[in-house]
Nucleic acid binder design. Structure first.
Length: 585
DNA sequence: TGCGGAAGGA
DNA sequence: TCCTTCCGCA
């Protein structure tokens, strides 16, 4: 296999730009960082430290000097180098370890799903977020060396709607993780640790799992592993590694396991050790343990909720149970199971969830921790207008992390007065609370906010447009079509979608919450007035049959303030009524 | 020390 | 596209 000219350590050809010169001047910075990290002689300059993928630049000037030497940029300094590193934030290749000087962390989670287009689901094996550590078992295959290889030779694996779309979304950055610069993995480990402890059979291989391998040991094997695929290196491979956020064949992140990936295994995703590294598993696609894939997706979904990612990506996995905040609306169909098109997938996962909604029977084991996404700089700057910032969030790190979920989060953090009460006709928002594609619907529905947002650079607008386009294509799925047409206000009817009625009810509830914050004295007065009014409204509603479960949803997140208990009970009654009505629909 | 906008080069 | 360079800001 061809490698770079570096005799000590070399990435495979695909890790370099095609125009890579013998001197490897085109090496990318993160490659270079990994290169340094791997070399013992630079451990005084840069070294792994802390969590997986986390490294500290011990001697920034020296690293910059080395980088400048590599790039023939003698004027290079750490300031410039760090600027380049910061560009990786948006690409989710790196993020900063907050509070630790010169400490960054490679992000690998998104790189995993991007590999999904090459999963051989039929093999009954599931992708791992773990690196391709050849430690001895047989369930891991390396993909071809380049996306073009895969896409040309494994077209059948690009199951439309299954993995490729996820991959594209991931590649686009609309699905991402670790966006807050903190250790995502540790939280995921918690969640998945619990999950795994409760895991059933199919876990025998766990005994084979390596413990946390030291970075170095993980990384050391990387070249050797990749080296096995030299013959598959596509001569025209274009910047084959996850660097490219672009969708499509040239931009798919990944069939190639990245060094970043390899060094940042997720312990909770039990890695299946793979003697395949030494066996003739040079096939062009991954094979994964299906059980682990399920767990991975759950973990990733957890990260979605923790980090404002897009669980909608998982709608393409109709048989993956998506952990969600438990919503006591038993009548609500298990959308992910019932409304996804019968994708041409006939693997055992299809049977696992067949016949019912597991979530109802087994409430999600995950702890939901809704957090506001990291504030971008301008958001921080905006200061006082937090609500506006949250609704129009366009932090460069999380331009896709906008939307009603964030609104909810903001409301949790700042109280009802800052809740954005969306128009009733904006029925997307509740969907986003439930299945939080945080970015896209917000973009569809809040273009007015975009105008107000000083952070909307043309670049970000382009990204948002891409996400909107993705959203439109995603709406081809019946699940998404649970929504009404944008802007369409369904007539009030006992048989309007339950969800829509929930939404409307929720909007009302939020208004009431806002009212509830206006102080005790005023509240009492308002309450008195409202009680009178609600008597009238209640009578009207008894005939109109509208309502919603938004209050229930919020109730899951926060205990209702005393002033709202009565409203909540109203909501519960309305919910019960709606449930009955819905049965009639 | 870190962030991110902007302009520009290769 | 991936930086490099410069800069203002926190």
């Amino acid at each position: 296999m061809k490698t770079s000219a570096d005799p000590g350590f070399a990435f495979p050809d695909w890790a370099y730009k095609p125009e890579s010169s013998p001197g490897s001047r085109q090496i990318q910075l993160w490659h270079f960082i990994l290169e340094l990290l791997r070399k013992e002689e630079y451990h005084d300059v840069i070294a792994w430290q802390g969590d997986y993928g986390e490294f500290v630049i011990k001697d920034p000037d020296e690293v910059a000097r080395l980088w400048g030497a590599r790039k023939a940029k003698p004027q290079m300094n750490y300031d410039k180098l760090s600027r380049a590193l910061r560009y990786y934030y948006n690409k989710r290749i790196l993020h900063k370890t907050k509070g630790k000087r010169f400490t960054y962390k490679f992000n690998f989670n998104k790189l995993v799903l991007v590999n999904y287009p090459f999963i051989d689901m039929g093999s009954g094996r599931v992708p791992q977020s773990a690196p391709p550590v050849p430690t001895g078992s047989s369930h891991f295959r390396f993909p071809p060396s380049t996306p073009s290889d895969v896409l040309s030779s494994n077209e059948e694996l690009r199951s439309p709607g299954m993995f490729s779309s996820v991959a594209r979304r991931m590649a686009r950055g609309s699905v991402s993780d670790c966006s807050d610069g903190t250790s995502t993995n540790s939280e995921l480990e918690e969640a998945m640790g619990a999950e795994e402890r409760g895991a059933g059979p199919d876990r025998a291989y766990r005994g084979l799992l390596p413990p946390r391998l030291p970075h170095d040991s993980l990384f050391r094997i990387y070249p050797a592993v990749l080296g096995r695929h030299g013959p598959r290196v596509h001569p025209d491979s274009l910047s084959p590694f996850p660097v490219s956020p672009l969708p499509g064949p040239g931009g798919l992140l990944g069939p190639n396991l990245s060094p970043a990936l390899s060094m940042t295994p997720t312990p909770h995703m039990s890695y299946t050790p793979s003697p395949s590294m030494s066996s003739p598993m040079l096939g062009s696609h991954f094979s994964f343990n299906q059980e682990d894939m399920k767990h991975y997706l759950q973990a990733h979904t957890q990260s979605v909720y923790n980090y404002h990612l897009s669980p909608r990506a998982f709608l393409h996995y109709p048989n993956i149970i998506i952990p969600q905040p438990h919503r006591p609306t038993p009548e609500k169909p298990a959308a992910h199971h019932l409304h996804c098109p019968p994708l041409p997938l006939s693997h055992p996962l299809s049977q696992q969830s067949a016949g019912g909604d597991e979530r109802d029977q087994h409430p999600s084991p995950f702890k939901f921790k809704l957090q506001p996404p990291p504030l971008g700089r301008k958001q921080r700057d905006s200061g006082s207008s937090l609500a506006a910032a949250s609704s129009s969030s366009s932090s460069s790190q999380s331009s896709s992390f906008t939307g009603s979920s964030q609104i909810i989060n903001s409301s949790l953090a700042t109280g009802p007065p800052k809740i954005k009460v969306e128009p009733i006709s904006d029925i997307d928002s509740e969907e986003e609370v439930q299945v939080t594609d945080i970015s896209e619907d917000d973009e569809l529905n809040h273009s007015d906010e975009e105008e107000q947002d000083p952070c909307h650079t043309p670049h970000r607008r382009r990204r948002r447009q891409q996400q909107q386009q993705q959203q439109r294509s995603s709406q081809a799925f019946p699940l998404i079509n649970l929504k009404s047409e944008p802007g369409h206000t369904a007539p009030i009817s006992p048989c309007i979608p339950l969800k829509l009625r929930f939404k409307r009810r929720w909007s009302e509830d939020q208004k009431m919450e806002a009212d509830g914050e206006r102080g005790e004295a005023e509240d009492k007065k308002v309450r008195a007035d409202r009680e009178e009014e609600e008597k009238r409204v209640g009578q009207a509603e008894n005939g109109g049959g509208r309502g919603g479960a938004g209050g229930v949803i919020l109730g899951l997140m926060l205990p209702p303030p005393p002033t709202q208990r009565r409203a909540s009970s109203e909501l519960q009654r309305a919910t019960a009524q709606l449930s009955l009505e819905n049965n009639g629909c």
